Computed example of a mutant assay.
Amino acid sequence: MKLELLQLMSPSLPIGAFSYSEGLEWLVQNKKVYDETTLFNWIESELSRGQITIEASSISHLMRDLANWSDHTDVQYKLIIEEWNSWLGSLRDSPEVRSQQKQMGESLLQLLIDLDHPLPDHEKKLIWPIAWAWAGVCLDITQIDMVEGYLYSWVANQLSAALRLLSLGPTKAQKLQKKSLVLIKSQASYLLEQNPKEIWVSDVGAIMAQQSHVELYSRLFRS
Rank of each mutant, 00 (worst) to 15 (best):
Q7I: 03
Q7T: 02
M9A: 04
P14V: 15
P14K: 09
F18K: 11
Y20D: 08
E22Q: 11
E25T: 13
N30G: 11
K31Q: 15
D35Q: 07
L39A: 03
E44C: 04
E44Y: 06
R49K: 15
I52F: 01
T53Y: 01
E55T: 00
E55A: 04
S60I: 01
S60N: 03
M63F: 01
D65R: 03
L66R: 04
A67K: 15
S70C: 05
D71C: 09
T73G: 00
Q76W: 02
E83W: 03
W84Q: 01
W84G: 06
N85C: 11
S86L: 04
G89Q: 11
S90R: 13
L91V: 10
E96A: 15
V97P: 02
S99L: 11
D114Y: 00
L119G: 03
L119W: 01
L119V: 00
L119Q: 05
H122S: 03
K124G: 07
P129M: 09
A131E: 03
V137C: 03
Q143H: 03
V147W: 13
Y152T: 08
S153I: 00
L159S: 06
S160V: 00
L168A: 10
T171Q: 13
K175D: 08
Q177W: 04
I184D: 06
I184T: 08
Q187I: 05
A188F: 08
S189W: 07
L191C: 07
L192I: 14
S202Q: 07
Q211K: 15
S212L: 15
S212K: 12
S212H: 12
H213S: 14
L216V: 13
F221A: 05
S223A: 14
